[in-house]
Amino acid sequence: MKNCYLLVIASILILQSCAQNKPTESKTKATSGNPIWEGWYADPEGIIFDDKYWIYPTYSAPYDEQVFMDAYSSSDLVNWTKHERIVDTSAVKWVKRAMWAPAIVKKDSKYFLFFGGNDIQSDNEYGGIGIAVADKPEGPFKDYLGKPLIDKFYNGAQPIDQFVFQDKDGSYYIYYGGWRHCNVAKLSDDFKSIVPFEDGTLYREVTPESYVEGPFMFIRDGKYYFMWSEGGWTGPDYSVAYAIADSPFGPFKRIGKILQQDPNIGRGAGHHSVIHENKSDKWYIVYHRRPLTETDGNHRVTCIDEMFFDENGLIKPVVMTNEGVEINSLK
């Protein structure tokens, strides 16, 4: 009888073990969800390289802890892979803190990552906008210049929040600026210097009404769409506005806001970028916002939603969601 009892117990344990080890059915995410990954990240730069979407954000933390950057990649906008510490202050030794707001371009088989460093408050401090370079979009990136590319307050613009834009003729321009001033400058072919415009100036101010920081530019139907962030970055009024012009130099007459807080979704929505997927002709806005449960200024998350245009080419107000976007595979 004892042996029979032990046999029954053994059978039960085997059945339980089999049940525990039975493969579970994997559930495919229908949408990206917002935020699109865990953790505090802000100022996202979204772009497509070859067959992948990439997002390069700021690590959102106290300035002295912002000494590295991560990146994320996806082939479908829904499933994301984290690439840790693609660059840090051990690779860019002149940066001590506040490594901010990456912008990236691919040129001549190299990836150039532009960033702000040290949050300088005057021309007497050392820092500004720098460049790192890598052979792959996930890095590792190394310092390209060994010093800042832009390190002074030209036209009153703090040297932060840069965006690098390639015009129709192949020229590269850098738009940047905090403290309610925005400059544009032309980059040399090797990205090692600023070259003068035809009138001899190096930095041209293009500040639109209500501009605060975070410029971004794209071309659609031959028009230049210039976008920026307004309000205070720690406040609920942080938002995105835009203008349309016939030239990359403006004039940029403000049309209105297209992204702002939603009391049911999140606050402080801003500092964005735009991804255009040509195959489907879908437009996406990648941005950060503060969850309704958070009051810490650094508690920002990266989100993505679709962006639409009306029949006149104006950008429709963005509807922030918790669902995010549907799968859009590049393969």
Results as ranks from 00 to 15, higher is better:
Asn3Ala: 15
Asn3Gln: 12
Cys4Asn: 15
Leu7Met: 09
Ile9Leu: 13
Ile12Gln: 01
Gln16His: 13
Cys18Ala: 15
Cys18Lys: 13
Gln20Asp: 12
Lys29Phe: 13
Ser32Leu: 00
Asn34Pro: 06
Trp37Asp: 01
Gly39Gln: 09
Ala42Leu: 03
Glu45Phe: 08
Asp50Met: 03
Tyr53Leu: 03
Trp54Gly: 08
Trp54Asp: 04
Tyr56Met: 00
Thr58Ser: 14
Ser60Val: 00
Asp70Gly: 11
Ala71Gly: 06
Tyr72Arg: 01
Ser73Gln: 01
Ser75Leu: 06
Trp80Gly: 01
Thr81Glu: 14
Ala91Ile: 09
Ala91Glu: 14
Trp94Arg: 08
Trp94Tyr: 12
Lys96Thr: 15
Met99Thr: 07
Ala101Leu: 07
Ala103Ile: 01
Ala103Trp: 00
Lys107Asn: 11
Asp108Ala: 14
Ser109Arg: 14
Lys110Asn: 14
Phe112Gln: 07
Phe114His: 01
Phe115His: 10
Gln121Thr: 15
Asp123Trp: 10
Glu125Trp: 08
Tyr126Ile: 15
Tyr126Gly: 12
Ile129Glu: 05
Ile131Gln: 09
Glu138Val: 01
Gly139Thr: 09
Pro140Trp: 03
Asp143Ile: 07
Tyr144Met: 03
Pro148Tyr: 02
Leu149Thr: 06
Leu149Met: 10
Ile150Leu: 04
Asp151Tyr: 04
Asn155Val: 04
Gly156Trp: 00
Pro159Cys: 08
Pro159His: 05
Gln166Ser: 02
Lys168Asn: 11
Gly170Asp: 03
Tyr172Asp: 07
Tyr176Glu: 08
Gly177Ala: 12
Gly178Asn: 00
Phe191Trp: 05
Val195Ser: 04
Glu198Lys: 10
Gly200Pro: 06
Gly200Gln: 08
Glu205Asn: 15
Glu205Leu: 00
Val212Glu: 13
Glu213Trp: 00
Pro215Ala: 03
Phe216Gly: 05
Phe218Tyr: 11
Arg220Asp: 09
Lys223Glu: 06
Tyr224Met: 02
Tyr224Val: 00
Tyr224Phe: 08
Trp233Asn: 06
Asp237Asn: 13
Ala243Val: 11
Pro248Met: 02
Gly256Ile: 01
Ile258Pro: 04
Gln260Gly: 15
Pro263Ala: 03
Asn264Asp: 12
Arg267Phe: 14
Gly268Ala: 09
His272Phe: 04
Lys282Asn: 15
Ile285Phe: 04
Tyr287Leu: 08
His288Tyr: 06
Arg289Ala: 10
Pro291Gln: 06
Thr295His: 11
His299Gly: 02
Thr302Gln: 01
Cys303Arg: 08
Ile304Pro: 03
Gly313Asp: 01
Gly313Leu: 03
Leu314Glu: 12
Lys316Ala: 04
Gly324Gln: 10
Glu326Phe: 13
Asn328Thr: 15
Ser329Ala: 13
